[in-house]
Design a protein around this nucleic acid. Structure first.
Length: 441
DNA sequence: TATCCACAGGAAATCAGGGTGT
DNA sequence: ACACCCTGATTTCCTGTGGATA
């Protein structure tokens, strides 16, 4: 990422010269898409066992029979989605009559029962026929059944539910899965089959017994993380497609593979690393991708994730983070920040910005948990004995980075919150409490 | 040893904002 | 205009709790 100049205007970036030089520089990429997560290569190394199993389960679709529902487990970047997509391509190639339909549903994006039904319907029709809200669920289900029989006559439709675990956490999740897994009972002309893809191995425990029996007809297929050597093979193949000849050495690919292997063998991450390294090298106008580009890429990716994540949070979550930031900013010693403090400061901030509601303890508590889950902060519940039970919160990423990101948030900039000193910190309340707490810890 | 603090965090209710069909 | 639907954010109500202190 290129640095923007800040409000003090010390650094200014000449975009025209940058583009001119960039165009003059060497071109490293041949086919950048090959490093995208959506890209399906001609072969998937080290997933033979999984491919074999899924092919076995789904083969009967070729003869017009209904494949059983099944599940794929494995951590992010272990090739679950890619394998399923790969199978779908191959199946279509070998189908003599009507190839099966495939509807992909990413449950992080399409995350409610209503929207899943609407998404399936709209995908099959190819148009936005069902509105984003408004109709009763059972009405849509009926419409969908009608559509299946009409539109997919004498064929099979695979419903792929990616990140299916997200669904279970929400209310109505079990119900929609139950409905989807027994669609066939209400269909005459067409048959459906559900493929669930999950990151969490434990998610079956949260399923209803009725759903488990529908979905667990087959042994789940487990995708194990890649090791460094396997990641190397994957990267090597993709790099050959993505980069021009001689642009990247084996050593650099090995480095990417090694770094990604440390993070539970995530192939998606490895590919991202490789692409970013290529982009950095291209920006630097070097002819080859070097190891230092990979190192820089690694740092950039981490930072980009953080920045992107913070920007994507709702305003109230940003203000909660802001409260934590201010608490750590205005206290010289290493102070102990509790959920109570955060609530107080957040309330102050909410009063400064018009049309921002002051939230309850309960809600702030949830936001703190979300921030902790995302890795921006650490929050540990601790009992202070007579002084009650609370959460002790600590910022977990670079102070400067948080400062930089938060200061770009519109409302925070508009109301000059970066320099705001919370009233609670102007009293001795926090200080006194901290003296007691420090002794206890 | 009972007490009591300052919350944690689950469950259900409520509200607002998007929509529908009649 | 009206009754009703779905969703996401938040509130309300609630019970639970670790351990210093009286």
């Amino acid at each position: 990422m290129l640095t923007n100049h800040n409000e003090k205007g010390m650094y200014s970036f000449n975009i025209d010269r940058f583009y001119q030089n960039y165009l003059k520089g060497p071109k490293l990429f041949k086919n950048r898409e090959a490093l995208e997560p959506s890209f399906i290569p001609d072969e998937l190394p080290h997933r033979n066992l999984e491919i074999e199993k899924i092919a076995g389960i789904t083969a009967c679709a070729l003869k017009g029979d209904v494949p059983p529902n099944f599940l794929c487990y494995g951590m992010t970047g272990t090739g679950k989605t890619a394998t399923v997509r790969y199978i779908s391509q191959k199946l279509a190639q070998h189908c003599s009559n009507k190839p099966p339909w495939w509807v992909y549903i990413n449950c992080t994006v399409v995350s409610t029962p209503y929207r899943i039904l609407a998404h399936i319907y709209n995908t099959i029709v190819g148009k936005e026929k069902i509105p984003s809200t408004g109709l009763p669920k059972d009405v849509i289900l009926k419409k969908l059944l009608g559509l299946f029989d009409q539109h997919i006559k004498d064929s099979i439709c695979f419903l792929v539910l990616d990140e299916i675990d997200i669904l279970i956490e929400k209310k109505g999740g079990n119900e929609i899965l139950y409905n989807l897994t027994r669609l066939n009972e209400n269909l005459d002309q067409c048959r459906t089959s559900v493929i669930g893809i999950s990151n969490k191995l434990k998610f079956m425990e949260f399923l209803d017994a009725r759903v488990t029996s529908n979905l667990g007809e087959e042994e789940p297929i487990v995708f194990h993380p890649y090791d460094a050597n396997q990641l190397y093979d994957i990267l090597k193949l993709r790099a050959e497609v993505a980069f021009k000849e001689g642009v990247i050495d084996d050593g650099v690919i090995k480095l990417c593979a090694g770094l990604a292997a440390k993070e539970h063998g995530d192939a998606r991450k490895a590919l991202q690393l490789l692409r970013k390294a290529g982009e950095i090298a291209e920006c630097n106008q070097t002819k080859k991708i070097m190891e230092n580009h990979v190192e820089k890429a690694q740092k950039d990716i981490d930072k980009d994730h953080i920045v992107e994540y913070i920007f994507s949070m709702p305003l109230q979550a940003k203000l909660t983070l802001m409260a934590i930031f201010l608490l750590s900013k205005f206290t010289k010693e290493h102070i102990i920040i509790t959920s109570g403090d955060i609530y107080e400061v957040h309330s102050e901030l909410a009063q400064i910005i018009p049309n921002v509601k002051q939230l309850t303890h309960r809600r702030i508590s949830d936001y703190i948990n979300e921030l902790a889950l995302s890795g921006l902060i650490t929050a540990v519940t601790k009992s202070m004995g007579h002084y009650g039970r609370t959460k002790i919160v600590k910022l977990d990423i670079e102070f400067n980075l948080i400062e930089r990101v938060l200061s770009q948030v519109k409302k925070i900039k508009e109301y000059r919150l970066m320099d705001y000193k919370p009233i609670i910190l102007q009293t001795d309340k926090v200080k006194i409490k901290n003296m007691v707490f420090k002794k206890l810890i």
